[in-house]
Design a binder for these strands. Structure first.
Lengths: 226, 226
DNA sequence: CGCGGGATTGAATTAGGTCAAAAGCCGTGG
DNA sequence: CCACGGCTTTTGACCTAATTCAATCCCGCG
């Protein structure tokens, strides 16, 4: 279930790497795992043994209905922490979107540290709050935005998060985007074409997954906020 | 903004009333406020000065788009705690659905206590996690369920939460339900009629807001889970 | 080069939205 | 007690945004 298809490279490191800002027991050991594109990192309802941080690659977290309908709750990109559960089991299935390397730490270890270090405990609360905030915003998108608004919001989100070059290199397919936005892949494709027609985005290179945001201003007016 | 239209009745009480299970400084004082049906308790982006617990009545928390589209993120019923923010300002607007009385505590006070009592701190994390879990499930509903499935899920949720008599007495209007489920009020009404035709629910009394769940089994098959 | 999995685009379908009317319910005041 | 006015809810008819179904198209890669 858990380790399946991975290169294990145990390294010693500090919790700072997990986003904890306090100095603390540097003897806590972190490991690295790699997952091939499309493989499962953990399944919904599995016991939450580890907490993960994306080192390279990208991950999708999703829920399924019994008939296969899928809702992706979040994408996890380089640096993001995921799989942090307060309860004892995972509430999403997590899969590598592309070949991905993660750092991981035993949940139990983290809890132990948190119990003795209020700063770490507070960081856990902050991370959970960040996740909650994202989910709250996403409920508004899923419940009330049009397809064009959703795709615009998506591009803006990715632009913010992939804060590297001016090219947005999307790791995920149209289907993934659709399942994140509560749409079909065709609708996503049409919306992207429309944004292109409007002169708001350009497709670059030969792949369809690299996007240049030519008019962030106009895009922001399409995705109306509060 | 905050106190506007309320009867203030300051009382002394213990934090236990706020759902904190640990014994702690009983000198912390709680107040009670009342809000008339339809009035705002706090607005989105206002500084989060207090944390609230519904004593009687019901509250809706929502976000608005600039053109008036509304997404209700949660309903708060008797006993529920709401308005707990980690950041400094509210992320929803909260309104009394019917005449409502709340207990409240200064956020600052709560934080102070949490800093010194790891049990309270842990309760804050648990509450945030509960909210997160609800939002995650609601994303699946909003993104991927049909109108009938959404309304079925709503009835089941209310049945669970209004765990009193066998009559589900809904405090909220069809429009509120619609804005919670990402539908229109007409679609909600039609779905309820359909559930009635199917012999799954009955309307009781003279109001349309009291529902008897005749066949919980069948209802559960309509709202398909994971 | 040719194969295969995305991605795009078009045409037809439909679930849910919109618009409109009628019915039901509740409070108020005569 | 009844009548009136202002809701909310239901129901019907029609409309549309998004889905579904179905071709291509397009690249990346063996």
């Amino acid at each position: 279930m858990f380790v399946r298809n991975s290169d294990v490279t145990s390294r010693s490191s500090s919790l700072r790497d997990l986003g904890m800002t306090s100095d603390l027991n540097p003897a806590v050991s972190l490991s690295e795992f790699s997952y091939k594109k499309g493989t499962e990192i953990y399944g919904e309802k599995e016991p939450a043994e580890y907490v993960y941080q994306v080192k390279t690659g990208a991950v999708r977290s999703y829920k399924l209905l019994s008939d296969g309908r899928r809702q992706i709750g979040a994408f996890h990109l380089a640096g993001d922490i995921f799989g942090l559960e307060n309860g004892s089991s995972h509430r999403f299935t997590a899969e590598a979107i592309v070949d991905t390397t993660v750092r991981l730490i035993r949940r139990q270890t983290l809890e132990l540290v948190a119990d003795n270090d209020p700063v770490v405990a507070n960081n856990l609360l902050n991370m959970t709050t960040t996740n909650l905030q994202h989910a709250e915003d996403h409920m508004l998108l899923l419940g009330r935005k049009t397809s064009l608004e959703r795709v615009a919001a998506f591009i803006l989100e990715m632009d913010q998060r992939l804060t590297g070059a001016d090219v947005i290199a999307l790791p995920m397919s149209r289907r993934d985007i659709a399942d994140y936005l509560g749409l079909t892949l065709e609708t996503v494709s049409r919306a992207l074409s429309r944004l292109h027609e409007f002169g708001i985005i350009e497709f670059v290179g030969n792949t369809q997954r690299q996007i240049v945001l030519s008019d962030r201003q106009k895009l922001a007016t399409i995705d109306l906020q509060g």
